[in-house]
Design a protein around this nucleic acid. Sequence first.
RNA 1: GGAGGGAUGGCAGAGUGGUCUAUUGCGGCUGUCUUGAAAACAGCUGGGUUAACAGCCCCAGGGGUUCGAAUCCCUUUCCCUCCGCCA
Length: 431
Amino acid sequence: MLDLAFIRSHPDVVKEAARLKYNDIDIDYLLEVDRKVTSLQREVEEARAQQNQISKQIAKVGKDKELREKLIAEGKQLAEQIKSMEPMLIALLEERQQLLYLVPNIPDPSAPIGKDENDNVPVKYWGKIPTFDFEPRDLYTIMQNLDMVDIERGVKVAGARSYILKNDAARLELALMNFAFDRVARKGYTPLIVPAMAREFCFIGNGQFPKGRDQVYAIENDDTFLVGTAEVSITGMFKDEILKVDDLPLRFVAFCPCFRREAGTYGKDTRGVFRIHQFNKVEQYIICRADHEESVLWHEALLANSEELVQALELPYRVVNVCTGDMGDGKVGMYDLECWLPSENRYRETHSCSYFHDWQARRANIRYRDEDGKVRFVHTLNNTAIASPRIMLPLLETHQQADGSVKIPAALRPYLGGQEYFRPHEIGAKV
RNA sequence: GGAGGGAUGGCAGAGUGGUCUAUUGCGGCUGUCUUGAAAACAGCUGGGUUAACAGCCCCAGGGGUUCGAAUCCCUUUCCCUCCGCCA
């Protein structure tokens, strides 16, 4: 959410941002609604001020019955007048609020201008693209050979885009979570395990609602929804709080199961476990002072953290600067980290690193008192640390061996009891 | 799931229909005093709205009664105690 005062004074800047983000919000209409709100609000407030005056007089009047009756009649009339204006005012306020939720943030001038992921600009490449002296298998085949996954029974239990990780894949997922959790926590990020279900305000706060409502599972009979990322829960944690500037920045590394409906993706990435409804993720999240330079600094730091993780997993990757049309309404800037996927002979997204300035903070009303005692909205940022099974695609494909086994990167071995290779049923059994 | 009790400003805690539309204490800030600090004393000390304010709004959220609601009524949420169930 942007500052309404900013939209009023810079409508053209906001319109341009909406254009760059392919967002069809009608700013002129918003401003028209806003004008109606302020004029009606003034009328109501003036009537209320009068009413308050009369109430005070009534309290003081004492014995004079005649005067008392007269004042009560006046008060009654004002009460009715206010009552008649209020429904319209409430409706207008609500309409303005809903429109405000749809106004995108202003992208940073450094963000590439473009429509979709094809316009994202690679800014960094790391690692050597692997070559194989055998015919490399794709993830699904590797997992089948190692008896790591049961798609059919997953679908039987939970429907399309569901899966069951078994044997070494199940162990690998936990190891990956632990690996990322440990490594980021050691940098001073506070480890959290946050709720996977959250109330509506959390989703409005992080920007998932109202626009992305169709991507979220609602829990019947309860006012909660399943989160698609820990970011939702963490934003909700600090709703309506005023933080101390000395406590900033708050840095978190959070584990949480994630749920996504993936509505409208039928036929996309249907094979295997690339695009699924439920997965596990360790997320990085930062709340810092309202300062652009500081936001940018942390944005780079978050990216560097993820790069270190991926480097430790010995996975070639590239970083792309995400273009305006692909980055989402709330974001000022966004990097995607994409790992090389041998089976597709291209890079695919495994991490997403964003900064928001105060766009989320305004929605969730998260503020801090700065050194001068002034209350300001915080800045928020987040980035994936590791998401699985998505990361298994590059991991298992890149490190596969001619004999069908998979070599485990050294950095991950401590989390797998020192194991060096995944081989069929070395641990676990056929089901 | 059942029964009961609660929710007030950073914290504690008064206030059960209007006479200052939030008493007071703690904490915090400033000043006096002091070489400095402590103590003592004095003053200040929530958020929002608005171009701004002496205006208006906020006593968990929403609705109602009333000329007037922190206060009365309904409702939702959350917390606490007890019972039941339970990993």
